[in-house]
C-alpha cells in the first residue's frame, strides 16, 4: 500500500497547502518589533526644528505612530481617517519619512488639517530603518510603556479602524 498511499498523501498535502496558500497575504510582513520596546531614536520635530524627540516622547499614554510622506499617494487616502481619530481624542504621533520640511508642511496644509501631536522629521529614513519601515504609510499602536503592540502596513481603512485599532487603543488604555 505504501507504493500508492505515499504519493497520494504527498499529492493531497501539496494541493491542500496550495489551497491554503491562496488565502494568504504574501505581501505584508509581520513586524518583529510588535511586542517589544519601541526602538531608540533621536530626531528633530518637523514643525519645531529646535525640539528633539526621543523614544521617551512615546511613553505616558496609548498612541498611534504613523509613518507618512508627502510623496506617498496612499497616505493622502488615509489622512481623513487620521483627522477623524484625532478629533475623537486618539493621540497620534507622526514620522515624516524621507521628505522635506517644505513639502511636508504643504502636504499637511492641503490635507485639511494636522492630526499629529508631534511629528518626527526623518529626511534620510534612518529612524524609519530603526522601526523596520519598508513602505508608507505604516501605522503602529504603541502602549503607555512605549511597547509597540500592533502594526499595519498600507493605508488605514474604516473597517480596520473600527474593528481593530479603536478597540485595541481602548483596551490598552484600560490596562494599568
Amino acid at each position: 500500500m505504501l507504493r500508492y498511499g505515499l504519493p497520494l498523501v504527498v499529492i493531497v498535502a501539496v494541493l491542500g497547502l496550495l489551497f491554503v496558500g491562496l488565502g494568504i497575504d504574501t505581501r505584508t510582513l509581520p513586524s518583529p518589533l510588535v511586542g517589544r520596546d519601541a526602538p531608540a531614536f533621536e530626531m528633530e520635530e518637523l514643525r519645531d526644528p529646535g525640539r528633539t524627540l526621543t523614544e521617551a516622547d512615546l511613553k505616558g499614554g496609548v498612541s498611534l505612530f504613523n509613518v507618512f510622506a508627502s510623496w506617498c499617494y496612499s497616505c493622502r487616502a488615509e489622512h481623513p481617517y487620521l483627522l477623524e481619530m484625532a478629533k475623537q481624542g486618539v493621540t497620534i504621533y507622526g514620522l515624516n519619512y524621507k521628505d522635506t520640511r517644505r513639502d511636508a508642511e504643504r502636504y499637511l496644509r492641503s490635507g485639511g488639517g494636522d492630526p499629529y501631536e508631534w511629528i518626527g522629521f526623518d529626511p534620510e529614513g534612518r529612524v524609519g530603518i530603526e522601526w523596520g519601515v519598508y513602505g508608507t504609510p505604516e501605522t503602529f499602536v504603541v502602549d503607555r510603556h512605549g511597547v509597540s503592540r500592533f502594526k499595519h502596513v498600507g493605508p488605514l481603512h474604516p473597517r480596520l479602524i473600527e474593528e481593530k485599532i479603536l478597540p485595541l487603543v481602548a483596551e490598552l488604555e484600560a490596562e494599568s
Binding site: 494541493l15 496550495l18 496558500g21 491562496l22 494568504i24 504574501t26 505581501r27
Partner: peptide
C-alpha cells in the same frame, strides 16, 4: 498566475484564477 508566491515575473493576479488552476491540477 495565482499570486500565491511573490516573484518578479508574476502576472497581476486574482485568487479566483488560482482556485481554478488549482482545481485543474487536483
Amino acid at each position: 498566475r495565482s499570486g500565491v508566491i511573490t516573484s518578479v515575473h508574476a502576472f497581476a493576479t486574482d485568487p479566483e484564477r488560482g482556485v481554478f488552476i488549482l482545481g485543474m491540477l487536483a
